[in-house]
Design a binder for these strands. Structure first.
Lengths: 235, 235
DNA sequence: TTCTGTGAACAAATTCACAGCC
DNA sequence: GGCTGTGAATTTGTTCACAGAA
């Protein structure tokens, strides 16, 4: 069996006790807390916070307790304290430089997305091989660079996190180059399963795949509805 | 407790026995199989297919067996048969009309994304309220329409699946309108937790959140590395 | 013999329910 | 009294290991 990617998270060294499922929810809590703080909320109960994050209060409490006790019994959680605590766990004490490979419409949209900047990520370079794209302006990122400059920029800014927004047939090659240059975390928008050495963390976001999951539910909903109205099993 | 969204999938009526985790992987298998078929592969073993999908062969076999026996012992799976079987489960026997709300750069990128069309989804309308955007061209979709036309288009084409690509502060309002118009599945790119009546399926894709998860691992990787080199606990 | 299909064992994640502190 | 923190129970998901069909 060759290189096997982690299906979700089994990274080689999490704070010995924070499960992958919790790690995936911490940023969500952080986002909700940010918004609460902006609204001037100083203290929040697990019930309220959980509701705004779309999880149960018991789960939220269990998740947070893994970071060490951070609430006050009988009272709730202090918003700024919790933001700091989660931010620390997530590595938000400093900003992360990020490169985007692929300057198609998705790459451009990601480069222009203010949410990255707002949440601690600086897009320090956007790359492509298409001569029509290289040199064109890409919003806050500046000019699109040629892929040949990738290694230089990754090393210059010690980039560890990269986004792949290329067509499927180029993603594996780009992945290999990124890894060779020193990138150890990749957010992959190409509809392919990448292989990378153990220790490289890959997260896949397949947009069509998400719609398929919704379609599954619609499909089955129709069957159920037909059941109810026609009284006959469909499919 | 008010309206609670399904955390991942508990939809009101899955083929009595296909767990949410499996449903989320079926589109992945389908994607891999499509590519195999394009390369002219007629038959594939669970080992090979699993490897290309990034899962274990045992899991793949278990997932597929839930659709009813679909392989041949001692041989493997016939690619076209499996594509048909999964496609049926996913509701790919027909195409799904989809609307996109929000014609910012992300909305445009999604509208231009060929992957949707290629995998059974037709973007039948893209909507915004910004007068500068309404009427502008949006690639294959045609003109960006005003949000006021949303209900008309949703009803005209019996749209059940929608994509929200608006700023966070408008997403809940848009969600409400979509639901009222008859949409029952939403892919939400706005960094908010939407609330919707039970039975409405929502999937969230928060781009910054994905990077946060990667940052967590990088953060901890550094700590481990520092541990090893400096011999002292960090954080 | 090979490779699927599957019960049984195991592991992970979530919920329950309540002890403990404010 | 109210709300956090947490063990125990439960549910869900994955892996193991092998029976059984081609």
């Amino acid at each position: 069996m060759p290189i096997r990617r982690t299906p979700d998270c089994p990274a080689p060294g999490r704070p010995a006790g924070v499960p992958a499922a919790t790690v995936a929810r911490l940023p969500l809590y952080h986002r909700v807390l940010d918004r609460l703080e902006q609204r001037g909320v100083a203290c929040v109960s697990s019930e309220t916070l959980a509701e705004q994050a779309g999880v149960t209060s018991a789960l939220l409490r269990k998740d947070l307790s893994l970071l060490g006790p951070c609430g006050t019994r009988g009272v709730g959680y202090e918003v700024p304290v919790l933001i700091a605590r989660i931010g620390e766990a997530l590595g938000l004490s400093h900003r992360w430089p990020v490169v985007i490979v692929g300057a198609g419409s998705l790459g451009h949209a990601l480069g222009a997305y203010r949410g990255f900047e707002a949440r601690g990520f600086d897009v320090v370079g956007m790359f492509d091989t298409d001569p029509d794209r290289v040199g064109s302006l890409a919003g806050p990122v500046g000019q699109v660079l040629h892929l040949d400059d990738l290694e230089r920029v990754v090393r210059r800014d010690s980039v560890r996190i990269a986004v792949i927004a290329t067509p499927a047939d180029q993603s594996q090659g780009v992945c290999d180059r990124l890894v060779r240059a020193g990138v150890t975390s990749i957010l992959n928008f190409a509809p392919t399963t990448l292989s990378a050495p153990a220790g490289v963390e890959i997260r896949d976001v397949d947009l069509a795949l998400e719609l398929h999951i919704l379609a599954y539910h619609e499909q089955h909903r129709s069957a159920v509805a037909a059941d109810e109205t026609i009284g006959e099993r469909v499919s």
